[in-house]
Design a protein around this nucleic acid. Sequence first.
RNA 1: GGAGCGUUGGCAGAGUGGUAAUGCAGCGGAUUGCUAAUCCGUGACCGUGUUAUAGCGGUCCAUAGGUUCGAGUCCUAUACGCUCCGCCA
Length: 425
Amino acid sequence: MIDIKFIRENPDIVKNACAVKNFADNVDDILALDKRVRELKTITQTKTAEKNKITREIPTATDKAPLIAQSKKIGEEIAADMAELADKEAELNELLHCVPQIPSADAPIGRDDGDNVEIRRVGEPPKFDFTPRAQWDLLDMNNWWAPEKIGEICGTRTYCLMGEAAELSLAIQTYVIQKLISKGFRFVECPSITKPQTIFNAGHFKGSDLSVMNNDVFMLTDTDRCLAGTAEIILNSLHADEVLNEKDLPIKYAGFSPCFRKEAGAAGRDTRGLVRFHQFNKVEQYIYCTPEQSDEMHEHILNNLCEVMEDLELPYRVIANCTGDMGFNKVKMNDVEAWFPSENAYRELGSCSSIGQFQARRTNTRYRAGDGTLQFCATLNNTGIALPRALVPVIENHQNADGSVNIPKKLQPLMGGRTKIGGKH
RNA sequence: GGAGCGUUGGCAGAGUGGUAAUGCAGCGGAUUGCUAAUCCGUGACCGUGUUAUAGCGGUCCAUAGGUUCGAGUCCUAUACGCUCCGCCA
């Protein structure tokens, strides 16, 4: 969430942020409520001070009765004002939770993903001297999945990988985890079951009403738990209510977890192949740092994902997501998209986000700065790799005429030294 | 699932109805000057105030209620942790 003091002092910046991110602008209502809340605080606090003064005289007074009566009377007056204060504060809080994060000045302004900007392109889409197969044909002919069977027994938007494809998926995850560990990330195997409040604290949803997430998040019936859509949720709360030491920052985590999403807004999209499921696996990069370190860390974790693309020998591009596409809690966002030959298009494999102090304010994660003061941490996150989606460009880009798939060099040690899988044996 | 114990500042840790001890760390200051020590100050959040400080006031002892003139302390519920029992990959 955004600091009320910042809104007081910079209402125009906040109004502009609401406009370019397509969120309702409640700034004027917030400022009016804030003014009234402060008035009520002054009134109740003055009366409370008066009451405290009398209460403190009671133990030593010879005639206690009149003091007790007076204290009781002031107490009743305070209760009336407190009721209005509580109402107004709740109202103010609700509006504050609907104020989006201020986007970075260098983020492109735009309405939706049509206004995103490509900032660089690395590698060339492969040229095949045969008719390349789409992912589903490669998977079928190599017996690497069983979509009809799994659909029948588990329902839509589920998948299974079999044989060498399952091995390759695990090898990619292991490769990325080891790479991140070597770059100073602490590996965390995260739970997927969590409390709704934990999801809310990651700041993807606006407002204070937890039921807004029911559309996107699987709730577990007859419990107070739900399933997290990403390890970011857990990593974001790992230091909630703690005070970190500035000298320990940045703290870098590589989280791994199964991820669960309803995909309610994607009905009919990507129903074939390995792109979009209710459950998938993801390695996630997550950073705690000072606001001053944030831009450098953004480049660091973006670069890590780009390196993974290069290690997987995939043509890819980096996108600067526009203000309207980046979401509620973000300062800036860069999607990394790999080349999907079957779609003749680049498609998202990862998303790198700077959150500023927005999440840390919700989780109350602070650090003791060099000057002794307390500050909210800045947080960032990026995909490490997501499976099985990442398998699609790997098998499509590296396929051979016989339906076999060349294994990228860096993965070969994790595949028992094999250089290719599948095809006619 | 059952029983017991616990939750106080960054950390450790006192506090049995009347203004939350103390130690360590961090930060600020003073002093000494062989690289460290000694002394003093300093909890967080909010309101008010200030160019900025200071000052003044309020709140905070896991969370939410309750009793009371007054609650860290008494009562109720919940969350989390630990120990033991049961079950279990």
